[in-house]
Write a protein that binds this DNA or RNA. Structure first.
Length: 548
RNA sequence: UGGGGUGUCGCCAAGCGGUAAGGCACGGGAUUUUGAUUCCCGCAUUCGUAGGUUCAAAUCCUGCCACCCCAGCCA
């Protein structure tokens, strides 16, 4: 069989297994899953996990289940499952089936009884504190529970009574009978089921006992016929347990194999759901979809194209080494994508009026919609000689290498003419109120006749008569100076640090009306942004000088 | 101090015994009606460290060092 080329260590493992014929009995089909818990919104860290899983699915023509890992009813809700499905779809990933761990509650219960029948599980009456106390420490072995020796019959009776609601919350748990002296703490008789009278968003009040992740996850994988269960590094210690639960449940080979990879970290970005929730709950941001948030919805609102996110994950790669990726790497992917595909538009954020004194009438100019494209098309922009330019594009005291407009200097109004500044009108405070220029007709954009007049720079503008107002919001970046924020940083967050916000100044947050991101045309904009000096801006609705 | 992992350029990351890919960042130059883009050119004699095996080691062996994860009835 022809094996696809592996681009990371996970695919390498899969190739080796395929080569060894591990999956011949099941037709060499590869099955993966993406298993978020519906207890919050997906963020860019999840995009990496999705890229890996969906990447395997596509490469091996396998199947992928989007599985809601909903075994803790206290935190889960439909609100989150809907947002997850939306996010996956927005990213353009196609899953084969949407499944829920809660779909398997009956089957999971049966398997738990099998564990009991096989002498692999027992009901334990110890309190939570007692269990913790007898678990031992990292260096000392744990002590066996006094209930460990209960007969199969007694365990079965007790477990059924647990299910039937005979005992209060926390009174009993079902435990796996493994090894209290294991150096791996996870193997010291972990809990399989706990009693919790919490209504589940899907099963309602049907159950008062709920399975734990360590049991439910591997068994759900096995039930679905998952071949590769890809998860993050912190589950490495759980792998022996994962295998134990699958084997003792009696699933035949090939059994699912858990493979761990390093999760995504980005400088200046907090990635944990818990802290993102804190930002939302305490009003630091307007919501999970606030454009400063690293959530998928936040990124979307910032105007980040999905393919840029995928490109970023591909660039970052998959490995097992702990790492923190520079935000510049993400920015670069976004800029690349926007540069190649975004429609160009001119916008003036901080306007000052510029009047061309020797121009009369009105004309239509042609603008390329995307100059990087062979035939990106053009649009018409009306020009009347009376325009707004950005205050930053004019200077009374220009710094040494200033390339934009100054008194007596020339500049090209993008797509129009070169103008020379003759005079400036100041207000009482000495601020520029209006700029007066003369234009040179022979410098009209696109003109082939050579002319003497040269411009130092190019400046964008919006026509006073035909330009349209846009609503504009600005944000200050959060975590400006924190290289990589540790968890303490989030703890330190309080109302006083409100001026520090999430994310960094970047030019990609504007969206045009049809939701297509476009590149904001500002001279030097990118440069300034990468210096970290600019504030994050969001154009809420923008109608520039397109003539529709 | 137990167990499980990881250490290759400022940041990611290939490499799997034959003499250090690539991306981001950075520096220099050219083109440019976005100080953007594009385009060249430069950027690890060295792979945590100390030994060993070998004609040959980032790759194999041994010791050491550093960092991460694990003691939820969370996932």
């Amino acid at each position: 069989m022809k094996l696809p080329e592996a681009t990371n260590f996970i695919e390498q493992i899969i190739n080796e297994e395929l080569e060894a014929g591990k999956f011949e009995s099941t037709g060499n089909e590869i099955h993966v899953r993406f298993p978020p818990e519906p207890n919050g919104y997906l963020h860019i860290g999840h995009v990496k996990a999705m890229c890996i899983n969906f990447g395997v699915k596509e490469k091996y023509h396998g199947t992928l289940n989007l599985r809601m890992d909903d075994t803790n009813p206290a935190k889960e809700d439909y609100e989150y499952v809907n947002s997850i499905v939306d996010a996956v779809k927005w990213l353009g990933f196609e899953y084969d089936k949407l499944v829920f761990a809660s779909d398997y509650y009956d089957r999971l219960y049966e398997i738990a009884e099998k564990y009991i029948l096989d002498g692999n599980a027992y009901v334990c009456d110890l309190s939570a504190e007692e269990i913790t106390a007898t678990r031992g420490t990292l260096t000392e072995a744990g002590k066996e529970s006094p209930y460990r020796g209960r007969s199969v019959e007694e365990n079965l009776k007790l477990f059924r009574e647990m299910k039937a609601g005979k005992y209060p919350d926390g009174a009993k748990v079902l435990r796996a009978k493994i090894d209290m002296t294991s150096p791996n703490v996870n193997m010291r008789d972990p809990i399989i089921y706990r009693i919790a009278r919490v209504p589940h968003y899907r099963t309602g009040g049907k159950w008062c006992i709920y399975p734990m992740y360590d049991f439910a996850h591997p068994v759900s994988d096995a039930i679905e016929g998952i071949t590769h269960s890809l998860c993050s590094l912190e589950f490495e210690n759980h792998r022996p347990l994962y295998n134990w639960f699958v084997e003792k449940a009696g699933f035949p080979a090939p059994r699912p194999r858990q493979i761990e990879f390093a999760r995504l970290n980005i400088t200046n970005t907090l990635m944990s759901k818990r802290y993102l929730k804190k930002l939302v709950d305490e009003g630091f941001v307007s919501g999970w979809d606030d454009p400063r948030m690293p959530t998928i919805m936040g990124l979307k609102n910032r105007g980040v194209p999905p393919v840029a996110l995928k490109k970023f994950c591909a660039d970052v790669g998959v490995a097992k080494a702990y790492s923190v990726v520079n935000q510049a790497q993400l920015d670069s992917c976004i800029r690349d994508e926007l540069n190649a595909n975004a429609e160009r538009a001119m916008a003036v954020i901080n306007p000052v009026k510029l009047t061309v004194t020797n121009y009369t009438g009105e004309e239509e100019l042609d603008f390329e919609i995307n100059p990087t494209k062979e035939d990106g098309g053009t649009r018409k922009v009306k020009f009347t000689g009376s325009v707004y330019i950005d205050r930053e594009d004019f200077s009374l005291n220009p710094p040494p290498k200033y390339k934009r407009l100054q008194k007596g200097g020339t500049v090209r109004l993008k797509g129009a003419y070169i103008v020379r500044c003759d005079d400036v009108k100041l207000n009482k405070n000495g601020e520029v109120e209006e700029i007066f220029c003369t234009y040179f007709p022979e410098t009209r954009s696109g003109s082939t006749t050579p002319c003497e007049v040269k411009a130092k720079g190019v400046v964008q503008w919006v026509d006073c008569k035909h330009g349209v107002d846009a609503e504009f919001r600005q944000y200050e970046p959060l975590l400006k100076d924190e290289e990589y924020p540790d968890q303490d940083y989030a703890e330190r967050l309080n109302k006083n640090s409100l001026k520090k916000f999430f994310g960094k100044a970047e030019p990609y947050l504007a969206e045009s009306e049809d939701n297509k991101p476009f590149q904001l045309m500002r001279t030097g904009y990118y440069k300034k942004c990468t210096d970290g000096g600019l504030i994050l801006s969001e154009i809420v609705s923008l109608k520039d000088n397109f003539n529709k």
